[in-house]
């Protein structure tokens, strides 16, 4: 049985992990985490619920996957891990662009700048409102507002550019 090697990242930390199915038990995966003396056995119990054992120790673990990340709950901690195989990342990284977007569906309540205006890092450019809270959109650095792409009162979706910045 061949094993598969993957890299797992969370923020600045990463680890290399090799896994292979347990030939005796279809519900179990055997995983060798880099730097661990003993392999870990991951047994799927029911939807999203796993039991991980390593020697005498065992942990209940909950997990759910999206296209981009694995959400894991273990020992009271929530981790979002990115798994990439040797063939490359599962996800394409988002390029750094200079369009500012809403972090969530929100209403634009005030636009405080106009195109061509010079702003300083941290200046509030746009006020959004979501969940009855005001969310200021601030300048990421010193620069100039190239274009305003939203209107006051508009309901904006995450990822949609509110403002171009240069």
């Amino acid at each position: 049985m061949t094993s598969t090697r993957v890299t797992i990242r969370a923020g600045d930390s990463s680890a290399t992990v090799e896994w292979q199915p347990d030939p005796q038990d279809a519900r179990t995966t055997i995983v060798q985490v880099d730097g661990e003396r003993e392999p870990l056995r991951v047994e799927r119990l029911q939807s999203g619920t796993y039991r991980v054992t390593q020697g005498e120790q065992s942990w209940p673990v909950y997990a759910a996957a999206t296209r981009d990340a694995c959400w894991i709950f273990v020992n009271g901690r929530v981790l979002t891990l990115e798994v990439s195989s040797e063939r490359g990342h599962r996800r394409s990284s988002v390029g750094a662009h200079e369009a500012l977007s809403a972090p969530m569906p929100a209403t634009v309540i005030k636009i405080l700048v106009e195109a061509g205006q010079a702003v300083k890092k941290g200046d509030t450019l746009i006020l959004l409102e979501a969940m009855k809270m005001e969310l200021p959109v601030r300048a990421p650095g010193d620069g100039t507002v190239a274009a305003v792409r939203c209107r006051e009162g508009e309901l904006v979706q995450p990822g949609t550019a509110l403002l171009e910045f240069e």
């Binding site: 797992i8 896994w19 870990l40 991951v42 390593q54 673990v61 981790l79 891990l81």
Partner: peptide, 29 residues
């Protein structure tokens, strides 16, 4: 900030069809 081995192991196993949840809710998030 540490990455618990148990979490890493499950993340890796999630990619493995035998261990991964097959229900639509989790995969088709």
């Amino acid at each position: 900030e540490s990455l618990p081995a148990a979490a890493l192991a499950v993340a890796a196993a999630l990619g493995e069809p035998s261990a991964a949840p097959r229900d639509a809710g989790a995969r088709d998030a």
